[in-house]
Computed example of a mutant assay.
Amino acid sequence: MTTQPADTDTPPERRATQVPFDAAGQRFDQVLAALYPEFSRSRLAAWIKSGDARLDGKTVRPREAVRGGESVELDVRLGIATDSAPESIALDLLYEDADVFVVNKPVGLVVHPGAGNPAGTLVNALLHRDPQLVALPRAGIVHRLDKDTSGALIVARTLQAHTALVEQLAARTIHRQYEAIVYGRLISGGTVDAPLDRHPVDRLRRAVVDTGKPAVTHYRVRERYRAHTAVECQLETGRTHQIRVHMAHARHPLVGDSLYGGSLRLPKGATPALAEALRGFKRQALHAERIVFAHPRTGDTVEAQAPRPADLAALIATLRQDAAEE
């Protein structure tokens, strides 16, 4: 469970600066955002409203025009952004520095606590690894992966890094690449540009809905098997269940995806080994294999590659062997 940042008994950090003279005529909230880019606009707006951000010692409206040269005081109150407890859960880190983690999330690990999963999540593991993450929204997690999707996931370790990474995510400049195994032999790749929203009947699912949020998935063929295809998927947007819904919409659902792929389909003449492998693969065949982003402090390119998990590697090996025996 996550909550909004709340004030604590810890004294705020007092910061002071001056409005640049060339900012004359601009709104106070605009100037404040330029002076303190490490904080989100929504957080700064809340501090203006509460009086924690002041102009010449006074509480003013966000739209107050500045003259230039005024003093600015900011009482930084980060508080507690999550009430989840730290838990000693092993983490596989693909990248780590003082600003960011890139975690290789295993299959079966829930990202955020919620109904049915109050503990034992990635948030709990992160709080054990770095207790300072308690002051960040969602313990620094800026995007998510489904419980049964494996692979690379970015976590900010500072508020400045979190703000910068959320902005990159909104600007669609974080490159996310996935590997998936789908039903059917695709002839070529393509793009699914179809808006997504909650399913009109089943609230656990997402669906292509005309009034939904824009969603774009690009895919290309990597390897064809007798009745399946390995594809590489790249996201322009990051909607919930996006690849799963889009590939099902393209009539090539993911292997093992009971929510969007329907019942198990065995190809005609499947070898016993392949039949056993498909029956035993109980999750969507989807892996977040590569992520590329600008470092939130330095701007340098960070690239992290998550190795293919053992269950997916075994499935691909069996599909190859089955194709060879055709």
Rank of each mutant, 00 (worst) to 15 (best):
Arg290Thr: 15
Val292Lys: 08
Arg265Glu: 09
Phe281Pro: 04
Leu259Lys: 13
Ala288Glu: 06
Arg290Trp: 09
Leu264Lys: 08
Gly261His: 01
Asp257Glu: 07
Val292Gln: 11
Ala288Gln: 06
Pro272Thr: 11
Leu286Ser: 01
Lys268Cys: 02
Gly261Lys: 06
Leu278Cys: 07
Phe281Ala: 01
Arg290Gln: 14
Leu264Asn: 07
Phe293Tyr: 13
Gly269Ala: 11
Ala288Val: 12
Val292Ala: 11
Gly269Ile: 10
Gln284Met: 14
Glu289His: 13
Gly280Leu: 11
Ala288Thr: 12
Asp257Asn: 07
Leu264Phe: 00
Ala270Lys: 07
Ala288Lys: 08
Gly262Asp: 07
Glu289Asn: 10
Leu259Asp: 09
Phe293Cys: 05
Arg265Ile: 14
Glu276Ser: 14
Leu264Ala: 03
Gln284Tyr: 01
Phe281Asp: 02
Lys268Glu: 15
Ala277Ile: 12
Leu266Lys: 10
Pro267Gly: 05
His287Glu: 10
His287Met: 09
Gly269Tyr: 03
Leu264Gln: 07
Gly262Tyr: 03
Ala277Val: 10
Phe281Met: 09
Gln284Pro: 15
Glu289Met: 13
Ala270His: 03
Ala285Tyr: 03
Lys268Arg: 14
His287Gln: 10
Arg283Tyr: 02
Gln284Ala: 09
Gly261Leu: 04
Pro267Ser: 07
Ala275Gly: 15
Lys282Glu: 15
Leu266Cys: 06
Leu274Tyr: 04
Leu286Lys: 04
Ala273Met: 11
Asp257Gly: 05
Ala275Gln: 15
His287Tyr: 00
Leu259Cys: 00
Pro272Asn: 13
Arg290Lys: 15
Lys282Phe: 03
Ala285Glu: 06
Ser263Phe: 02
Leu264Gly: 02
Ala277Met: 13
Arg265Leu: 09
Ala275Pro: 05
Phe281Gln: 09
Leu274Val: 13
Lys282Gln: 14
His287Pro: 02
Lys282Ser: 14
Arg265Val: 15
Gln284His: 15
Leu266Ser: 07
Leu274Gln: 06
Leu259Pro: 00
Leu264Asp: 03
Asp257Tyr: 00
Ala285Arg: 09
Ser263Gly: 04
Ala285Cys: 08
Glu289Gly: 13
Phe293Gly: 02
Gly262Pro: 02
Arg283Asp: 01
Pro267Ala: 11
Gln284Phe: 00
Ser263Pro: 07
Ala277Phe: 02
Pro267His: 07
Ala285Ile: 10
Ala288Ile: 13
Lys282Arg: 15
Gly261Tyr: 00
Ala275Arg: 14
Asp257Arg: 06
Arg279Pro: 03
Arg279Tyr: 05
Ala273Trp: 04
Ile291Phe: 02
Pro267Phe: 02
Arg265Trp: 00
Leu274Ser: 04
Ser263Thr: 14
Leu264Thr: 10
Ala277Asn: 08
Tyr260Phe: 02
Phe281Asn: 06
Arg283Cys: 03
Phe293Asp: 00
Gly261Met: 04
Leu274Trp: 03
Tyr260Gln: 06
Lys282Pro: 00
Pro267Glu: 08
Leu278Arg: 07
Ser263Val: 13
Gly261Pro: 00
Ala273Phe: 01
Arg290Asn: 06
Tyr260Ala: 03
Phe281Cys: 04
His287Trp: 02
Arg265Thr: 15
Gly280Arg: 12
Ile291Tyr: 01
Leu266Val: 15
Leu286Cys: 03
Ala288Trp: 05
Ser263Leu: 11
Ser258Lys: 13
Gly269Thr: 11
Ala288Pro: 04
Arg283Ile: 12
Asp257His: 05
Ser263His: 13
Gly280Lys: 10
Arg279Gln: 15
Arg279Ala: 13
Glu289Phe: 01
